[in-house]
């Protein structure tokens, strides 16, 4: 399960994610992170069964947490099943099915945005994400 963690760094440079790993023993995979001097946002992947535990501990440490769902959206009326997105996706989200129709495995997506930029038919967009 993927969680978006946002935190302010005004209170000092607390190693929040490292702290949660130590406290909970859950191995957190950081898939994407954008951190500057005042705030940070990280996309983390954790086992589903540890979700509640990790969320609770992150919240205790002052981070805002939300579950990432419906990450990338494919407009099938625009998509022509060309496959330009397939090889450029670092997470192998896209593939062809047996009928050469484009299929997505949204769960693998880490929101890098590369496919949205390169889709020749503008068929891909973020759904519910700012």
């Amino acid at each position: 399960m993927k969680l978006v963690v946002t935190f302010s760094r005004k209170a000092g440079k607390k190693p929040i994610i490292a702290q949660v790993v130590r406290d909970t023993g859950v191995l957190i995979n950081v898939e994407r992170a954008l951190i500057d001097s005042s705030e940070g946002e990280a996309l983390i992947d954790i086992p589903d069964e540890s979700c509640a535990l990790v969320k609770e501990r992150l919240a205790d440490l002052g981070a805002a947490v939300r579950v990432l769902e419906d990450i990338i959206s494919l407009d099938e009326s625009r998509c022509v099943d060309c496959g330009a997105c397939i090889s450029i996706c670092p997470q192998e989200v896209f593939s062809f099915d047996d009928d050469w129709r484009l299929r997505m495995d949204e769960k693998k997506c880490v929101l890098c945005g590369r496919c949205i930029e390169i889709c020749p038919h503008r068929a891909l967009s973020h759904k519910g994400e700012g």
């Binding site: 022509v80 099943d81 060309c82 330009a84 997105c85 397939i86 090889s87 450029i88 009928d99 050469w100």
Partner: peptide, 14 residues
Amino acid sequence: EVRTSSLSSFRKAR
């Protein structure tokens, strides 16, 4: 092993 991307649509061609 290098992954490939088609830019044309085989489904449409068919």
